[in-house]
Simulated assay, not measured.
Amino acid sequence: MAATFKSIKSVVPLFDRILVQRFKPDTKTASGLFLPTSATSGTLPEATVIAVGPGVPDRSGKLVTPSVSAGDRVLLPNWGGNSIKVGDEEYFFFKDSDILAKIKE
């Protein structure tokens, strides 16, 4: 079953879900040489946050907001996440607690 979305902006995460787009490995060197697919087949553990859910209530009912916001660069685990495709692009949902780190520039 494939979901159809007109735009990634129409996808709004719920609860403590984070929508990210993973960085793609470079397929070309700085000097213009193309790298073979065997050298670029892995995914990088870095991603850009596209959208963030509102958070989840704690035991007292107070809303706990996620620790990242749209536009942040984050470090992801190599496992997990639920993927969706919008056009040719692939995006992933992770829980806020699955995000390993925020990358400061």
Rank of each mutant, 00 (worst) to 15 (best):
A2T: 13
A2L: 14
T4D: 13
T4K: 15
K6Y: 14
I8D: 00
I8C: 05
K9W: 06
S10E: 15
V11C: 08
V12P: 07
V12M: 12
P13R: 06
D16C: 03
R17V: 07
R17N: 14
I18K: 04
L19D: 06
V20L: 00
V20E: 02
Q21K: 03
Q21R: 13
R22T: 01
D26R: 14
K28S: 10
S31F: 12
G32K: 14
L33P: 04
F34H: 02
L35N: 12
S38N: 15
T40M: 07
T40N: 03
T40G: 01
T40Y: 11
S41F: 12
S41A: 10
S41I: 08
T43C: 10
L44S: 05
L44F: 04
L44Q: 00
E46L: 13
V52Y: 03
V52P: 00
P54Y: 01
P54D: 00
P54M: 01
P54V: 06
P54T: 14
G55D: 01
D58A: 06
R59N: 10
R59F: 11
R59W: 06
S60Q: 12
S60L: 11
G61F: 09
K62E: 13
K62S: 10
L63M: 11
V64R: 08
V64W: 10
T65V: 13
T65N: 09
P66T: 05
P66A: 03
S67M: 05
V68F: 06
S69M: 04
G71A: 04
D72K: 06
D72C: 03
R73M: 08
V74P: 01
L76M: 08
P77A: 05
W79R: 15
G80F: 11
G80H: 03
G81Q: 07
I84V: 11
K85R: 12
K85N: 15
V86K: 04
D88E: 14
E90S: 09
Y91Q: 02
F92S: 12
F92G: 04
F93M: 09
F93G: 08
F94K: 00
F94W: 03
D98W: 01
L100G: 05
K102A: 04
K104S: 10
